[in-house]
């Protein structure tokens, strides 16, 4: 690898800029964790002590706990669904050719480029025009539409890197199409499936622009609950929620690193 050009004054400048950028990147994450332990309602510097009040407040708030339950329930429904739909779809998109493939692919991936608000408002307007009570089903459907492209993109990238001759070799040695898929393709898709799951799961938990349209009081999800709380109250309870999410993402990164190296799984 070519690393010599990060030497000298030029190298120091670049490294310094990168260091500043990294501080900028980490600042809100570190700060929100610190703030969640603040003993005071408003930010004070230096911190006046250490308190678990906001964490207790968060975990004992029925609104936040219901929202967390809804969020995780929805993410746990949407993630496997997007794999079950996304894996065969990616396989068809990558491995076979058929009329209208490009158009279908464009449509399925369109929520990636069409702003979330437009997707959310369209889904809401269609579902209510159809006289549907949105509920958990509508929320999951909306999130599935929105998150499926993330899954398909990660899976297709993985599939494109696989040599189709390996599947032919399996057929040649006597494996039928299903056997080939389960014994040969699926094991090689491990990293794509992992990446897809992480993207979809995180997106389902974090998404605001779809959820704000499709969740109601009984299906309120965490981001919406947090937004409403921030509007109405002025205390670090949301920082406690943020801390929980950050801890979760650290665990997720550690898990990815252990399974396959997180750098590899996060290629967009």
């Amino acid at each position: 690898m070519f690393r010599r050009d990060l030497e000298g004054r030029f190298g120091i400048t670049v490294s310094l800029l990168a260091a500043v950028a990294t501080v900028f990147l980490l600042l809100p994450v570190l700060f929100v964790v610190l703030h969640s332990f603040s003993p005071t309602r408003y930010f004070q510097w230096p911190p006046q002590g250490f308190s678990l009040e906001w964490h207790l407040n968060f975990y004992s708030s029925s609104m936040f706990m219901d929202a967390a339950k809804n969020s995780f329930l929805m993410a746990l429904i949407v993630t496997p669904l997007s794999l079950v739909i996304g894996i065969p779809a990616s396989y068809a998109l990558v491995r076979s050719s058929f009329k209208g493939k490009a158009v279908i692919q464009q449509i399925i991936l369109s929520p990636l480029i069409i702003p979330g608000v437009v997707t959310g408002v369209s889904l809401l307007s269609l579902l209510s025009a159809a006289g549907m009570n949105i509920g958990l089903f509508g929320l999951c459907l909306g999130m599935l539409v929105f998150a499926l492209p993330f899954a398909i993109r990660a899976l297709s990238a993985n599939l494109l890197g696989l040599d189709p001759r390996i599947e032919e070799a399996a057929r040649n040695l006597g494996a039928g199409p299903f056997r080939t898929f389960f014994a040969i393709v699926l094991p090689q898709l491990k990293s794509g499936i992992l990446a897809a799951s992480v993207f979809v799961f995180v997106e389902a938990l974090d998404n605001f622009s779809i959820a704000v349209f499709l969740s109601n009081d009984s299906t309120k999800v965490l981001p919406v609950a947090a937004y409403q709380y921030i509007k109405d109250f002025d205390d670090p309870t949301v920082a406690a929620m943020a801390t929980a999410l950050i801890v979760m993402s650290i665990i997720l990164v550690a898990f990815l690193e252990k399974v396959m190296g997180f750098q590899k799984s996060l290629r967009l």
Binding site: R165, I166, E168, A169, A170, R171, G174
Partner: peptide, 28 residues
């Protein structure tokens, strides 16, 4: 169907199953 033809094939670039050991490849 190819899986019922009983024809052995050596592929260009070999197309070994990357997630299986040599032994499992041959046993497949």
């Amino acid at each position: 169907e190819p899986n019922f033809r009983d024809i052995g094939m050596v592929f260009q670039n070999y197309a070994l199953f990357p997630h299986m050991t040599v032994e499992s490849n041959v046993a497949f």
